[in-house]
């Protein structure tokens, strides 16, 4: 079973994402900010990361930069999931090493479509 780490400071978003991802057949882990997520990845590298941008402690783009520098950190497919819908921000995420980008709000079809495009479905 593939694993997906949901990184978001909103418990509601994590719960919604968990339900969608479990329906898609993923084992789901959760982290409330980038630092928690990085600690989790150092223990168990997930197949995919659903990543919020704006979070306390460590934001999404900082987490992504540090993740990619970790041993094995190039492997997970990282899908940003953010309220940021500015094209410049989306470009920044992709240039920073993200594989896909979801603009909130989202639904199950969008998550499934983006996971497939990232090659992790």
């Amino acid at each position: 079973m593939k694993t997906c780490l949901v990184v978001d400071d909103s418990r509601v978003i994590r719960k919604v994402a968990r339900r969608i991802l479990e329906d898609l057949g993923f084992a789901v882990a959760e982290a409330g900010d980038g630092a928690d997520a990085l600690a989790w990845c150092r223990t168990t590298m997930p197949d995919a990361v659903l990543l919020d941008w704006n979070m306390p402690v460590m934001n999404g783009i900082e987490f992504l930069r540090l993740l990619r520098a970790e041993p094995g950190g190039a492997a997970p497919k990282v899908i940003f999931c953010s309220v940021e819908n500015d094209l410049a921000r989306i470009r920044e995420a992709l240039d920073g090493g993200a594989d896909e980008y979801i603009m909130k709000p989202f639904d199950g079809d969008i998550v499934a479509s983006k996971l497939a495009m990232a090659g992790v479905a």
Binding site: L87, I90, A93, L94, E100, Y101, F106, I110, K114, M117
Partner: peptide, 25 residues
């Protein structure tokens, strides 16, 4: 709309082929 461009369209294609618009892209 934001929903429509996320159905089947890769983010790289969105930034390459679309422009921002007050009602979406």
């Amino acid at each position: 709309s934001q929903f429509e461009v996320q159905r089947g369209l890769a983010a790289r294609r969105l930034v390459r082929h679309f422009e921002a618009h007050e009602a979406g892209f």
